[in-house]
Write a protein that binds this DNA or RNA. Structure first.
Lengths: 357, 357
DNA sequence: CTGAAAGCGCTAACAC
DNA sequence: GTGTTAGCGCTTTCAG
């Protein structure tokens, strides 16, 4: 194809076109577009006007090729609409937006053989300056990432599962959330607290379990057997059926709200009242939590704060390859006490209280 | 497993390195990497082996620059973890994955001045071969996209709000979903059905309202005044308070499950039973819908099917610039009848009206 | 402060 | 079937 140096019919304008119109060199256009210093205000204005007149749009592919930087961050998520992961993803998008980077997304399905390693690999393949791994789960020891990753990595909601050149983390708060829940229940007077855990391949699920366990131990309470669910309301329902059969259960901490809701449903179906007979607490504070019956006591997860803090670290690591990671504070724990928790029933003198809701 | 040695450390293997190792020309490597024809099996194997040995990774930026195609699709979503939009996004990711394209994501916040146009613009800026707009909302007539869009666009869940060179749509089923719900309620014997609509800036909300309205009209029923919510359980709750004051209400169709749940909560609080006094239906079939009290009757949205169908169209449009768009079938409507719907209560006065239909 | 030259790693067109 | 020759549109030296 011949050089279309003079005309650009149907072709997007290039920086050289802008340069000609503004009467400067192409390099100067580049300087202006990148907001570099050492450009006189007059030249800058002329370039900007010319660019605007032409409808100039910087070609990112060319920039990436020449500079080796893509100005995009890749995120690996679970391919699920679960409230937690979805909220985190949205938080990440917002946070990335603020940093001026673009966002690429790749999902890992649960049970995906390639798992996180495959997703990271494909991101590296597409070209990203940094990677966010959101809520990783261990897929068959998939934690060992055999890919060499030489861009900074942010792990959200789990400690570094593998060694990469520069890894930062954020959102390691499940432990505290679980502690807050457990203590709330203990303070109400419950002798102990049962736990309906999330799938243990998830770090978040393990961390919540540990937080619960540690809190119980700290208060010298007996640790009841753990029931493991899969985050779904259906699994909560199944767990509720089992728990309802045990008269000693007076308080249950479900690792997320969906399971808590399923659990409550099962309890109600067999005639156990919540919270009069059994208190139930969830975790997440999903949008409907305040409107189920009874309104659910739960802890809110700080998704946006986590995403923002994490991205700040990641971008810092990208742009300052040699600097040390700056630690961020953990966001405050936000326990939302509603009506699914109450003191344990008085066994000797059952309180007969009528509630219409 | 691939290894990455460093993007511009001078050590990143390029196609020419692979070519040298395999003893072929660089162009041949390119042919092999792109799966082109006319490469002997022997050469292909040698190239692949050399690439693997070197840990070669194709440079997408260079490819994009040279070919003008990015092999990525951009998606514009609402920056919300609402079940509907989040599910659609996940569906899109999965579908995009299957097509071999990569995915870029940009959010539009509600109330964002730049709105969809800005998001599309930024996507165009980053370089994409096609664009998916998921559940657009009208932001102050933001429908007029002043940007020139010269890549195919897929609109999910709404008709084309603007003129672009090639626009395809999918997921226009809200109307039918609303119809299914309304008819279900009518068939149970309700004289009419009230509607708690979604925010009318959303096409999905308008379409549901239209579906409900048309169905009522088709059955010759009176159309009660519409209450508008904002998708949230809180707005459903507020609507429930108002509706509960009206004795004539026996059936309500809420435009999504969250609002339905809030609505039910409000009804229960003032002593109106669901479904004995009032039937309530939602829309979405969120994960907890089956476990709230009472279990919610709702219609499931075909997110995955919509995303897949839509992406098929989009990719077709991308790869066949001149072909006509192929229409796809609408997925079947999936009404899930649970326990929040029942025949209307028996009035003390049998003012039962005969309907001939 | 500004400009000229030299690629970044790949694909496209056309030879062979 | 395979190689050769040009660029894609930008950023990078390095001059002035």
């Amino acid at each position: 194809m011949a050089r279309l140096t003079g005309r650009n019919t149907g072709t997007a304008p290039r920086s050289i076109d802008v340069a000609r119109l503004a009467g400067v060199s192409q390099k100067t256009v580049s300087r202006v577009m990148n907001g570099e210093q050492y450009v006189s205000d007059d030249v800058r204005r002329r370039v900007l006007e010319a660019a605007d007149a032409l409808g100039y749009r910087l070609n990112h592919a060319a920039r990436a090729l020449a500079s080796g930087r893509t100005q995009t961050i890749g995120v690996v998520t679970l391919g699920t609409a679960l409230y937690g992961p979805a909220s985190l993803l949205m938080g990440v998008e917002r946070a990335v937006r603020d940093t001026g980077y673009a966002l690429r997304v790749v999902n890992t399905m649960e049970g995906d053989a390639a798992g996180i390693a495959g997703a990271v690999d494909s991101l590296l393949d597409q070209g990203v300056d940094g990677i966010v791994i959101s809520e990783p789960i261990d897929e068959e020891g998939g934690a060992n990432l055999s890919v060499r990753v030489d861009v900074p990595v942010l792990i959200l909601g789990a400690p570094p599962p593998f060694a990469a050149s520069r890894v930062v983390t954020a959102g390691l708060v499940s432990h505290q959330l679980a502690q807050a829940v457990t203590e709330h229940l203990l303070e109400l007077g419950h002798t102990t607290v049962h736990h309906l855990a999330g799938p243990q391949r998830w770090y978040a699920a393990r961390d919540r379990l540990e937080g619960w366990r540690a809190t119980l131990a700290a208060h010298g309470r007996r640790e009841p057997p753990v029931i493991e669910g899969d985050w779904s309301a259906a699994s909560g329902y199944a767990a509720g059926r089992r728990l309802a059969a045990d008269d000693s259960v007076t308080a249950v901490f479900a690792a997320n709200d969906d399971m808590a809701i399923g659990l409550i449903r099962a309890l109600l179906e067999v005639g156990r009242r919540v919270p009069e007979d059994i208190s139930v607490v969830g975790l997440d504070d999903i949008p409907v939590a305040a409107y189920v019956t009874p309104p659910l006591t739960t802890v809110r997860q700080p998704f946006d704060a986590t995403a923002q803090d994490g991205l700040k670290l990641l971008v810092h690591a990208i742009e300052n390859p040699d600097a040390d990671p700056v630690p961020v504070d953990n966001p405050p724990v936000n326990l939302v006490v509603r009506e699914s928790t109450a003191p344990p029933p008085n066994r000797t003198t059952p309180e007969r209280r009528r509630t219409t809701d």
